[in-house]
């Protein structure tokens, strides 16, 4: 029963996330590329989406952390790594190039995967392949959970 409720809660969170992406315009690559295109007719929509998301998360996540533990786990699992290193910057730089070429980041790509268009499917398959390649190239990166 607990397993079912946990799975249902994760499903609902994912569904809510996708709904927010779609309402915010993030499942339209032209909007994303418009934000990244400073030489053209700059489209600030993404600023509002990210701003809204960051502010809400900032406030609500503090309330959540006041509980001692999450509902379906015994403890919170928050990132502990500190400091900015070359790996972080190199990875973010590569990701940004892919984002700017295709107009998709992982969330909108997946949310668009079953909408009938071929592009998002190609994107998601290539993204998963890229994750596999990273695992092959850096075998030590396989994280214990």
């Amino acid at each position: 029963m607990r397993q079912i409720r946990s799975t249902a809660a994760a499903f609902f969170a994912g569904a809510l996330f996708a709904t927010g992406l779609a309402i915010g315009g993030m499942t339209r690559p032209s909007k994303v590329l418009g934000f990244l295109d400073f030489a053209g007719a700059w489209d600030p929509t993404l600023v509002f989406v990210m701003g809204g998301a960051v502010v809400v998360y900032f406030v609500v996540h503090r309330l959540v952390l006041k509980r001692g533990a999450p509902i379906f786990d015994s403890t919170f699992h928050l990132p502990t790594r500190k400091g900015i290193d070359a790996r972080l910057i190199a990875g973010a730089a590569l990701f940004g190039v892919g984002w700017g070429l295709g107009g998709y980041c992982p969330g909108p790509g997946l949310a668009s995967a079953m909408t009938g268009a071929l592009g998002p499917i190609v994107f998601v398959c290539a993204m998963v392949a890229g994750m596999w390649m990273d695992r092959v190239l850096r075998p030590s990166s396989r994280r214990p959970s």
Partner: peptide, 16 residues
């Protein structure tokens, strides 16, 4: 788009 997906997959793992 395929090249972009590869970069996104690799970059997001490298950059966590």
């Amino acid at each position: 788009v395929a090249a972009a997906g590869l970069l996104v997959g690799m970059g997001t793992r490298l950059g966590s």
